[in-house]
Design a protein around this nucleic acid. Sequence first.
DNA 1: AAAAAATGGATTGTTAACAATTTAATTTGA
DNA 2: TCAAATTAAATTGTTAACAATCCATTTTTT
Lengths: 201, 201
Amino acid sequence: MTISTNRLSARDNICDVIRRELIGGKFDFDQPIREQKLASRFGTSRGPVRDALLRLTQEGILVYETNKGVRVNSPLSEEERSVVVAMRLHLEKFCLKKFLPLATDSDFGQISILLERLTSACDRASLPEVAECDLALHRYWVARASPHLESTWLGLSVRMIMKYSRLSDYDQIREEHDRIVRAILDRNLTHASLSLEANVI
Amino acid sequence: MTISTNRLSARDNICDVIRRELIGGKFDFDQPIREQKLASRFGTSRGPVRDALLRLTQEGILVYETNKGVRVNSPLSEEERSVVVAMRLHLEKFCLKKFLPLATDSDFGQISILLERLTSACDRASLPEVAECDLALHRYWVARASPHLESTWLGLSVRMIMKYSRLSDYDQIREEHDRIVRAILDRNLTHASLSLEANVI
DNA sequence: AAAAAATGGATTGTTAACAATTTAATTTGA
DNA sequence: TCAAATTAAATTGTTAACAATCCATTTTTT
């Protein structure tokens, strides 16, 4: 989560790195995650690692079993995924509606930068980076519109994006986000919502 | 969360107790929560307390700030709440649809017991207990229909139920849940969904 | 030989001490 | 007197050691 911190702690750092790798598909489903292994990898003790794993558990990426540690959660069924998609869409459309009127030039600048990064990641055809930039872009307007609902949105989105077969067509991703961002810069809510619906599936 | 454990650890215990108290309105909004205080109260060290607080943070009940600890999250705005309600309703109706065909007599027995507890809590007019029993009842069919989405559902529901002005009318609560459970025992999806819509608002 | 019991290694759960940071109180300076 | 700088207390962040539990292997028992 890291809701606005200056210097991010070991825990936050570990959490972000692991989440990125999980999103990028670096671990297999049901694969157990060992605390000590991560601790030595990040050069810390098991404490911060445990904290990070607990957070990811609550996000639904990992599953926890007492005295057995965590493992990568198995993927959602098609039905479950469609429910999550609908919820995320509902939430994100609400956030867009709230965001557009209060968006400043600075916001537009930030969004342009994030779109730039996403485009660049698509060019490099790097799936982990694409997934991360994709989330970061959407997250921007969610966080601006409703900090309260940011963690809810993150949980849904991360769960959605895992096992992302759709992420093969980088041209399409770039195109879809181009369209969303253009609509946002025009403050055109209808168009932005429609573009979002085409993208979040 | 405690996704199926035999003996629950200090962390799980603390987490459940604190969540219950938060739902019951024992803490004020924005009130800071001190680790040491809880630790001595539960007779443990700060470790398990930290774990529990992190979990509740991810559920959205608490807010975390680096080096400053956690505090009770401020309540959702009316708009935000209506979005959460819509999401929860969507999710829970899906779960009902999945649950009804696979429900066994044992399930019906469990649900009846949970309803009994809710009714009893209403009789005692104990708000914390009513809130807890309410959640436990709904949670039952969610967990049975889709363990994957249980934590998502919990996050939405807990966030919804905090600051529960609606929970004043205990007769209505009992009535609404009576209706939902009756529809479930009849395996009447249409009726169950409608009763749910009247309840989750 | 098969099932049950015991063993040892690996892993998680918990603790207490220490380090780093924040917060409040106190002192200092203009 | 008021604001800035300094100190002290409170609080969180991290660590390493120890306890409890799980899991695979070996031994024992029938």
